[in-house]
Design a protein around this nucleic acid. Structure first.
Lengths: 136, 136
DNA sequence: TTCGTTGTTTATAATTATTCTAAAGAAGAT
DNA sequence: ATCTTCTTTAGAATAATTATAAACAACGAA
């Protein structure tokens, strides 16, 4: 069980006031054992299901984006009609089951080190992400 | 210079009749030396610029999707407001300059072998793609 | 060539994810 | 308490993509 104080801290760190709505969003996002892959729409529906309270879609977008900017959420690079996020912000990779539109975590050690032997002058590497698409 | 016959062949292989519009799309897509990264909108504008003839947006979408399905174009997994495609369909990876929204090819040997040491029962690997995000 | 069938193009409408807006309400500091 | 600033919200605006259906073009058979 993650404490409400942690949510408040996360919110304040993201320059967001801890409101009832945002705490509810945190409950759904961070009060879990396993990593959580979601779209804004998934999250929007889950909030009502889990907390019984409705939060407007705009608030969900705002809060998720603030968390993403602060590094509490990770965006998963996938071409889909919707944007996927991940509560696991550690360095890791993904399977994407194209048919079922489902994401599966790949531990870093499941992929092994990735060496980028090319560099672009004036630019540094921000992230290295592997996407493994799966088919039947 | 790629010949018109090749375009017609690509179109027929994709179950598309070789029309004037589609040949024009092929001119912009495949008549080049280097790999070409583009969005549908880029392509749409380039067709008018390069061929002097307008092709409707719907036709561009249809044709690009047919080529993608057939494997003549590759979709680049990136979260952007628009979908990026690549005329280089060989196994390779990308840099993405987040600030300039620009894609840069990474040759396969620039990345080295990627070993996926996990498998999902009943599924097989369709593709393995690395996206390296760049910042200043 | 001509005709009939089937596939294609196009403008436009529909759909959908995301962002914007502005008014009403809540949080925080004094 | 009160004032300022931030937040929530419904709904409108935006933008990429997909669907529609009428006019048109490619193809193949006679």
């Amino acid at each position: 069980m993650t404490s409400k104080q942690e949510f408040i801290e996360k919110l304040r760190n993201s320059s967001l006031r801890p409101t009832k709505q945002r705490i509810n969003i945190c409950e759904v996002l961070f009060n879990r054992d396993k990593t959580f892959h979601f779209t804004i729409n998934d999250l929007f529906k889950l909030i009502k299901d889990k907390t019984g309270e409705k939060v407007s879609l705009a608030t969900v977008y705002n809060t998720v984006h603030a968390f993403h900017k602060k590094g509490y959420l990770k965006e998963i690079p996938i071409n889909s009609n919707q944007t996927y996020f991940d509560t696991n912000v550690t360095d890791h990779h993904h399977f994407f089951d194209v048919k079922e539109e489902k994401l599966i975590d790949l531990k870093n050690e499941d992929v092994g080190p990735i060496e980028i032997q090319k560099s672009i002058p004036g630019k540094k590497i921000k992230s290295v992400e592997v996407l493994v698409k799966l088919e039947d």
